[in-house]
């Protein structure tokens, strides 16, 4: 089977981004839409009076909220949906993290293989969340349906003032 993990691909293993800050600070309405979408309306996510009595000292966002806190920047003039007009666009971006190089592999599908998290604290409304990403490993396994390339990405999340939130290992699969 064709080897997709070429020297060009191997060269990006270990690449690390700088710390990137989320587009906006954590907002109450964003937290609300989040816990409503995951169907988890605990008072600690919205009732300040009740949340003040907890160890968090106020309302929090759900545990892995930070993983989704990185949105399109206000200064990003390229609309990602414009790519949908390109008949060749396969709906898949190979730029897996801001500040990390794209993975130069032409396999047509990108799937999320799973996550491994270590949690330290939860975001609060008003927190600015920052993240630093590293390509930890890229390797190929040949299965019955063809080659699969596993891309292991470490993401460290913290608040801008340095409170650790969580560390993530995410395995993305190209096939």
């Amino acid at each position: 089977m064709k080897n997709h993990v070429t020297d060009d691909v191997r060269a990006i293993i270990g690449a690390q981004s700088s710390w990137n800050e989320a587009t906006n600070a954590v907002e109450a309405s964003e937290v609300r839409r989040f816990f409503q979408a995951i169907i988890d309306p605990k008072p600690v996510y919205w009732d300040e009076d009740q949340a003040k009595e907890t160890r968090y000292g106020g309302t929090i966002a759900p545990p892995a909220f930070a993983v989704h806190a990185f949105r399109r920047g206000t200064d990003e003039t390229i609309d990602p949906l414009d790519a949908g007009l390109d008949p060749e666009f396969d709906g898949v971006s190979r730029a897996l993290r801001p500040g990390l190089p794209s993975v130069p592999i032409a396999l047509p599908r990108v799937l999320n293989g799973g996550y491994e998290y270590e949690l330290f604290s939860y975001p609060r409304v008003g927190d600015r969340i920052k993240c630093r990403s590293t390509y930890r490993d890229i390797y190929q396994r040949d299965g019955k349906t063809g080659p699969m390339v596993f891309i292991v990405i470490e993401d460290e999340y913290a608040t801008a003032d340095g409170r650790p939130l969580l560390k993530s290992l995410n395995t993305m699969i190209m096939r």
Binding site: I38, D40, T54, R55, P62, P63, A64, L111, N112, G113, G114, Y115, E116, Y117, E118, L119, T171
Partner: peptide
Amino acid sequence: LQLVADWAGETGWLWKIRFQF
């Protein structure tokens, strides 16, 4: 995450979790 964090409650801590899709 909700499953395990709810069980850990306000006095326990969901430290590590992993899952495969």
